[in-house]
Structures are given as C-alpha cells and as structure tokens.
Amino acid sequence: MKTLVLGIGNDILGDDGVGLHVARRVARMTRAPDITVKETAGTGLELLELIRGYDRLIVADAVIAADPKPGKIQRRELSDMTNAGNDISPHEGSLTSVIELGKVLFPGEMPGIVSIYTIETAGVEEVTDKMSTEVRQAALRAAISILLECNSLIKSTP
C-alpha cells in the first residue's frame, strides 16, 4: 500500500515542531519502499498537493489541548475530526475539508485510509528550536506507533 507519512509543524516554534521530528524519526527507522515521508509547515491547499496519489495517509501534528498533557499521543481517524465546514485550521482549512475538496477536484487520488497522530504540546508561544522533554520523547513513541501501524518497523537483530 502506497503510504505517505506527513509531519506538520514549525521547527522554530518549540513543541509545534513535533510533527516534523516524528517524520524524521520514521524516515530513519524504515526502509520500506512503499512508505514516503514528507515534512511541511503548510496546511490547507498545500496539503492537498502533497497528499495526492497515496492509498494511505498518516499525519503527525501538534495539538493545543484545553487541558494539556504534554507528550500525550492520540491516534485519530478522519471521522474523529469535526465537521468539514466548521472545522477550521487557522490557515487555509482543515484536513477534513481538504480531503473533501480533493475528492471532488481529483477523483480517485485522495488517500482512502487516513490516520492522524496528535501530540499534545506544552505551549507554542515562544520562538525556540527546542522542544519540551515530554514532547521530544513522545516524538519517538509516535514514530514507533506509526511504523507498527504500517507493519514496517525494522526488527532489531538479536
């Protein structure tokens, strides 16, 4: 299955960069030919162009929770995300609406299977290239979970 692992984030905004770090770890931990790893700081239509042509999409991104538990990882599916119309990512539109749009614009090119790994952050208000310890550790755990989902984790040799 042609799979895209997409890390979203900004690596000079502290924990907001965790999605990118997850993607980098995934890239280092697998050699599966059917897995492509990409990083982006974009959202909305930018994503539409990146995710075209894959069977499966796995997104890793930071989330700001109302009652944050930094480093908490949750695996969600598209149906867990809110309604396409009202679910608005601050920039150009949510993942849900992007995929809806993509189904109309590019029939048959949108990933049929979508999972989203969200990592709760300790805060993204300060410009820094350092993540909090909890979130940095979570990046590795999220990468392992993603590769387990793809059944592509390189087994360590005894």
Binding site: V63, T82, N83, I88, S94, I116, V124
Partner: peptide, 13 residues
Amino acid sequence: CFSCSTHALGHMP
C-alpha cells in the same frame, strides 16, 4: 495574519 505559523488540527468554533 494573526499568529504566525501556529496551527492545530481540531474544532475551533
């Protein structure tokens, strides 16, 4: 352009 580059997945009514 309110807050530069921060983004989040989720519902924001």
